[in-house]
Simulated scan of single mutants.
Amino acid sequence: MTPLGRIAAPALALAFGAAAAQEAPQAVSATYLCAGGALLQVAYLNQRGDPGWAVVAYGGRLVPMQAGPTGSGVRYLAMDGGGLVWHVKGDEGFLARDGGDRQDMLLEDCRRAGSRAPIRP
């Protein structure tokens, strides 16, 4: 299990309630290789009837996010109000900070590396 996987399961339980994390039918983690060689780890939680959740490891912290509306792919928005956005479509994505009238790119051209691994609490 990846370090994010060991941390993400308890973080998801704290962020969304222990019951939601225990009932999760699909929890996977993925590592993305981004432009400039940066690595980004993301844990996804998809529960039937919910919009979808992700925990992104960025800047030395875990950022819980909820899926929101988008034209294509999935756009996850930070739940802490900090404006962090993870937009993923298939095996590609980018991380940005939404500043209202503009969006600052933090990590671009991210591509999933390797296979997805289940998260085990």
Rank of each mutant, 00 (worst) to 15 (best):
R97L: 09
G36L: 07
M79N: 07
A15R: 05
Y58C: 05
Y58I: 01
G49F: 04
G99L: 12
A18H: 11
G68S: 14
A78P: 04
Y32G: 04
Q47D: 10
S115A: 15
D101C: 06
G82T: 12
A19V: 13
Q26F: 09
M1Q: 06
E23K: 15
F16P: 00
V56Q: 01
M65Y: 01
P51C: 10
A11P: 01
D91R: 13
Q41G: 05
M105Q: 09
A43K: 02
D98E: 05
N46V: 08
V56S: 01
L12P: 00
E23P: 00
A30W: 02
G81K: 07
Y58H: 15
D91G: 05
S29P: 00
I7L: 14
M79K: 04
A21S: 08
W53K: 14
I119L: 15
L62G: 04
A117R: 14
D98C: 00
V42F: 03
A30Q: 10
G114D: 09
A96Y: 01
M79W: 02
R6C: 03
I7R: 15
M65P: 00
R102V: 07
A117Q: 13
A20Q: 12
G114E: 10
A20N: 09
G17H: 10
L14S: 13
V28E: 13
C110K: 08
A15Q: 08
W86C: 00
T2W: 09
L77G: 07
R61F: 00
P121M: 08
A19S: 13
V74H: 04
G52E: 01
M79Y: 00
N46L: 10
W86A: 08
R111D: 02
V55T: 05
S29G: 14
G100A: 07
F16L: 15
D109T: 06
D50Y: 13
T2R: 14
L95S: 03
Y44D: 06
S29L: 10
R111I: 08
A13L: 03
K89N: 12
A117S: 12
R48I: 09
L95D: 02
N46K: 13
R61N: 02
P69K: 13
L84W: 07
D109G: 05
M1N: 04
E23A: 15
A30R: 11
G93M: 00
R111Y: 03
A38T: 10
G114Q: 11
R120Y: 03
A38D: 12
C34D: 00
F94W: 06
L4T: 09
D98L: 00
A54R: 01
A8Y: 08
G17C: 06
R116Q: 14
F16Y: 09
L40C: 05
S72T: 12
L84F: 04
G93Y: 03
A11Y: 02
G37R: 08
V56L: 14
L106K: 05
L107G: 03
A43I: 00
A67F: 04
A11L: 05
L33W: 06
E108D: 14
Y44I: 06
S72V: 07
R102Y: 12
C34Q: 05
